[in-house]
């Protein structure tokens, strides 16, 4: 098959002018793919006061930055951003377009894909290039992994969560150019952002916690859930969950771990009352030590962890909490 020289694009995501880690991670992976395809990596960077990020993106592997630095682009606006990106893409014809699975990316990516009449794969856990030089997009499904390709339509689009790819080591010697994008921008304002409100996340942040607890459907009820939350506090651990815990209203969507949630790589992972479904487990694959508590000895979760405890989690966690308190008291009195 003939090599396509068209570039690989990454849509940058920023919040209050801070570049999100997922953007550099995607640029790093795009570089790897671009080297196979022998083509360039280009980033679309939109915002107000974002000019300082171009160096970082070039050091991460980009060859060119399309920069829209304008007060009108300060916060994400679905119609303006979509229109701008679609016009640029029609002009420069990227063969691949990667987008972070952030709340902005998750809205923007399908808007752009539908306008460009192309395919879009959600929440990939790996990206590669196959023999036909197509982008291979992997997602977990049905206890395994499936590969998706977009053979005919361009660009081949995918979203990827933060943490799926690691931060690329910066190469300060790399060179690249910055192309500035000028207005006027789209003026149709059927949607308006009135304000963006940021709230302090409660508890220990999952991304950086060295120990992460995740609770699942097996928590049983709100009381069972509260006990697991208490255990997280006592262990100074980040508290994550599986989707049923969100569906039950015990936990916030933001704390869901897995393919369509957060990717974490703590030193210790403790999964409580969850079955080890792939879509959740891919989110903790990077953990060093993995422990599971489940009442069913045959649960598939036990095939995927280092330490297993077969027990009813409500009863067990109650005893565990008591024992940890005793242990902590002893530690204090020994000092």
């Amino acid at each position: 098959m003939k090599k396509d020289n068209n570039p690989i694009w990454v849509l940058a995501d920023q919040e209050n002018c801070n570049l999100l880690a997922v953007t550099s991670q995607l640029v790093g992976q795009a570089r790897i793919l671009a080297d196979v395809l022998e083509t360039s990596v280009e980033v679309v960077l939109l915002g107000d006061g974002v000019q300082t990020h171009s160096e970082k993106l070039i050091a991460a592997g980009a060859d060119r930055i399309y920069m829209g630095n304008d007060p009108e682009l300060a916060t994400y606006h679905p119609e303006i951003y979509t229109d701008l990106i679609v016009k640029l893409a029609k002009e420069h014809k990227p063969q691949i377009m990667l987008v972070g699975s952030t709340s902005t990316g998750r809205e923007l990516a399908p808007l752009v894909a539908a306008r460009l009449k192309t395919g879009l794969t959600a929440h990939c856990i790996d990206l590669g290039i196959n023999q036909e030089l197509l982008l291979e997009q992997k997602i977990p499904a049905y206890g395994g992994e499936i590969t998706i390709v977009c053979p005919d339509k361009r660009p081949q689009m995918a979203t990827v969560a933060q943490g799926v790819f690691s931060d690329p080591p910066p190469d300060e010697g790399r060179r690249g150019d910055v192309v500035s994008i000028q207005g006027p921008f789209l003026s149709s304002r059927r949607v308006q952002t009135l304000e963006v409100v940021m709230e302090e996340p409660a508890g220990i942040p999952l991304d950086t916690a060295s120990c992460v607890l995740a609770g699942g459907a097996g928590a049983g009820d709100l009381n069972g859930w509260k006990q697991i939350a208490e255990l997280a506090t006592v262990l100074n651990a980040g508290l994550g969950c599986t989707r049923p815990a969100v569906d039950e209203g015990w936990a916030e969507l933001e704390t869901m771990i897995g393919q369509s949630g957060k990717m974490v790589s703590p030193d210790t992972y403790l999964g409580i009352g969850l079955s080890g479904e792939q879509q959740h487990m891919v989110g903790v694959a990077g953990a060093k030590v993995m422990i599971a508590i489940n009442s069913d000895k045959k649960s598939p979760v036990f095939d995927q962890v280092d330490v297993g405890i077969v027990d009813d989690c409500q009863a067990f966690v109650a005893v565990l909490l008591e024992k940890i308190r005793q242990y902590k008291k002893q530690q204090v009195s020994c000092q």
């Binding site: 206890g143 992994e145 499936i146 590969t147 998706i148 977009c150 053979p151």
Partner: peptide, 10 residues
Amino acid sequence: PTIVTEMCAV
């Protein structure tokens, strides 16, 4: 536009 090409167990 997209198709599944492969399924594998992990």
